[in-house]
Simulated scan of single mutants.
Amino acid sequence: MADSVSIEAAGVGKRYCRSLRLATLYGVQDGLKRAVGLKTGGEPLRSGEFWAVRDLSFQLRRGECLGVIGPNGAGKSTLLKMLSGSVLADQGKIRVAGRIGAMIEAGGGLQPLLTGTENVYAYAAQQGYSTAQAQAMLPRIVEFADLQGQMDKPVKQFSSGMQVRLGFSLLAHFPPDVILLDEVLAVSDARFRAKCLNRIPQLMQHSALVFVSHSMPQVARVCTAVAVLDKGACIFQGRDVPKGIDAYYAVCEPDIPPVSSGTGQAKLLDCRLLLDGQPLQGALPYGRELALALDLSAKAAEAPTLSLTITNPELNNIIQCDSAFSGFRLPADGARHQVLAELGPLHLNPGLYFLSLTVANEASGEILLRSDNFAKLRVAGEYFGHAPVQIAGRWTLD
């Protein structure tokens, strides 16, 4: 393996057995084979076995961050355990150059019976740093983890969030050659997540990172490449991170039903998505103008405003169009009215989106109708950006 390569995985696979009884039997058989010098893992799957990870290959260098994404049960955590050495691969080879720092679970790498301060010294010694270096670094570690006044307690008394903060702070101040992160930021608050995401590019100057997460905004922000796993198989691998995220959404595409709420004083009677004045057939081409023909009725004391929202498959709001900005209000006479909402060109990443509508009294905030996910929208195109929405802007030399 070249010196510049921190991790090399070649045809890596791991299989498990669904039956505890058979797993014990197979474990004894494989142990006996290894004891006499025979290789295991190359034979076909036995009864009850399945591939948690199969035939995965990649190289990772310092300065790179590989995002490993996929649905639950895809094999992501199994891969990290093989890379860390806590689980042996049944197939292929893994070679890691240098020291490994892993946060595969909250509290991973910490000694629960030691205090927070003692853990700092223990981790520093494990990574080859002296006691004097650990002592000099201690105040910065505590400040980054926001654990002032907590470091004299045993780590077992820390909450999971506190353990994550201390564990990541140790990685950040004593960076190893390889860092493995498995969904650890999910239990942190927004402030600490932002602090960690801002620190990762600095860590990449010293380390190669493997980052497992279900948060696609986090993956888009920090990863230089992605591998999408599904049922143990790698279905996408490459440096086009946004395209990999779209592959992830294709695997995890949700079937989200429409949901209505509100006072009932407004009703969405019909909706049509339009392209060039005609009903949209299939996907909306990237960058084209979208319009909606909404058949609505409302009966209230005041004419309400309308708000359209486009969300991603995780139901995070991406775009909002509020009629109040245009001074438009829906007549509240109880009659059926057709409203044309022209949203203009949509430079959305290719993929699946959902549309929601809110009809509300602007003055009181009373919601007459909230219709979530009343329509699906698929955008098609070849351009994938690192943010959900792209703007062309104007670029000139001054």
Rank of each mutant, 00 (worst) to 15 (best):
P154A: 07
T115I: 12
E118L: 06
Q157N: 14
D146W: 04
Q135M: 03
V120Q: 09
I141R: 06
Q127T: 04
A124Y: 03
V155K: 05
Q133C: 03
E143S: 03
S160K: 05
M137A: 15
D146P: 07
D146R: 14
Y129F: 14
V155I: 13
Q126H: 14
V155A: 03
Q148C: 14
Y123G: 03
I141S: 07
E118G: 04
M137D: 11
K156A: 08
M137K: 13
F158Q: 00
E143Q: 15
L138W: 03
D152S: 11
L138S: 01
V155S: 10
V120E: 01
S160G: 09
Y121A: 01
Q148G: 15
A134M: 05
L114G: 06
Y121I: 11
Y121W: 11
M137P: 07
K153N: 05
Y123L: 00
M137N: 09
L114M: 14
K156F: 13
G149E: 13
V142C: 05
A122Q: 08
D146T: 08
G128P: 01
Y121T: 02
Y121Q: 08
G149N: 06
G149S: 13
I141T: 11
L138C: 03
S160E: 01
Q157K: 12
I141H: 03
V120M: 05
P139W: 10
V120T: 02
P154R: 04
A124P: 07
T131K: 11
Q133H: 09
A125F: 06
S159M: 04
Q148E: 15
F144K: 12
M162P: 08
R140A: 15
L114N: 04
A132C: 09
M162E: 10
T115N: 05
N119W: 01
Y123T: 08
S160D: 04
R140D: 14
R140E: 12
D146Y: 07
Q150D: 14
A134V: 07
V142D: 00
T115V: 10
I141C: 07
M162V: 05
E143K: 04
K153W: 15
A122N: 02
S159W: 06
Y129C: 11
M151E: 01
D152T: 14
A125C: 04
Q150M: 12
V120R: 00
Y123W: 11
T131Q: 12
Q133A: 08
F144P: 12
S130P: 05
M151W: 02
K153L: 15
F144G: 09
L138P: 04
L114S: 08
I141P: 00
V142Q: 02
F144W: 13
A132F: 08
Q150K: 13
F144S: 12
T115S: 11
Q150F: 15
V120N: 06
A145Y: 10
V120G: 09
L138A: 11
G161V: 08
Y129L: 04
S160H: 06
A136R: 12
